[in-house]
């Protein structure tokens, strides 16, 4: 096994420099793009996420190693395994991310990344503390069962994470069409973070936007419509712990009060689902919005 460095360790200083550069841009162009308390919350979530990852990482790695020991193919460390692993890991990320939005159990962990009403580079570092609890890793480690070494998975996963940092910005418009067609870009990811009904639950890609095009979840950014960021029901607080745990608390309350036959649904159905129809899912919001648009057009 080759000696591998930890890409994120080298990327962190660049993250900090780029955040400061973007803040300078905001200072001269649009100061409202940053909010000091929001930035602090996002960065604290990022630091906490690193700690949570350090505490649970060994366990996840051990599980991946166990899968690797029972692998189907001996892929080893051949050169072509690296790009192939990167692409397959990105595909696995797409499904993990899509599930993270469509199944409340996983959403409870992933919502942390979306709860800022700002969209800047500090938002990129707004990561979950409860990914291990949500078992989100189950989507990406099965590649070890195919025959990719867990160290390789960790390595390409780190580059995936680093790629996704720079797309969290409003400072960049759109790239040439060929690039926007293949790669995830700031434009595509702004759509993903938007709460505008037309954009809800779209563009789940990590690095390659082609997955969204292939699986029917792609939506193009519309220049004429101002994007609103965050979650449908904005938190309205910068409280760090509430930002981390609010959806878990919501799940617990629903599990406690729901009739027995509906309890499981509050875990596995989409966020916003309720047994009495008193809430709205993103599909319901979009349908209502579409109806209103059609009524306006008539």
């Amino acid at each position: 096994m080759p000696e591998l460095f930890r890409p994120v360790d080298y990327a962190v200083p660049a993250f900090i420099i780029l955040i400061i550069a973007e803040m300078l841009w905001a200072r001269s162009r649009a100061p409202e793009k940053y909010e000091p308390r929001d930035t602090l919350t996002s960065l604290a979530l990022g630091t906490g996420s690193t700690v949570a990852g350090a505490l649970t990482g060994a366990l996840v790695f051990s599980l991946a190693m166990w899968m690797y020991e029972n692998r189907l193919f001996d892929i080893g460390w051949v050169w072509w395994a690296w790009p192939l692993c990167f692409v397959l890991d990105d595909l696995a990320y797409y499904w993990a991310h899509r599930t993270g939005h469509r199944v409340r159990w996983f959403w409870a962990s992933h919502v942390n990344h979306h709860s800022s009403q700002h969209y800047n580079l500090s938002t990129a570092l707004r990561q979950t503390w409860t990914g291990f609890l949500a078992v989100s890793f189950i989507f990406r480690i099965p590649l070890a069962l195919i025959g990719f070494h867990p160290a390789m998975l960790l390595f390409v996963g780190a580059f995936n994470l680093i790629y996704q940092f720079w797309i969290h910005t409003e400072a960049i418009g759109k790239f040439p069409r060929w690039f926007e067609y293949v790669m995830n870009t700031p434009s595509h990811h702004r759509v993903h973070h938007a709460t505008n009904p037309r954009y809800l639950d779209r563009n789940y890609a990590g690095v390659f936007i082609i997955w969204d095009r292939m699986f029917g979840t792609f939506t193009e950014e519309v220049d004429s419509e101002k994007i609103r960021y965050g979650i449908v029901r904005q938190l309205g607080t910068f409280n760090l712990l509430w930002s981390v745990f609010h959806e878990w608390v919501g799940i617990f309350k629903d599990l406690w009060s729901a009739p027995w036959r509906h309890k499981l649904s509050y875990l596995v159905r989409e966020p916003g689902w309720s047994h009495d129809g008193s809430r709205e899912t993103s599909d319901m919001i979009r349908a209502r919005w579409l109806e209103a648009q059609e009524a306006k057009a008539d």
Binding site: I20, M23, R27, P31, E32, P36, T39, L40, L43
Partner: peptide
Amino acid sequence: IAWLARFWRLGG
């Protein structure tokens, strides 16, 4: 970074 955001009067 949070101090810098405040120092530069980001927000509004």
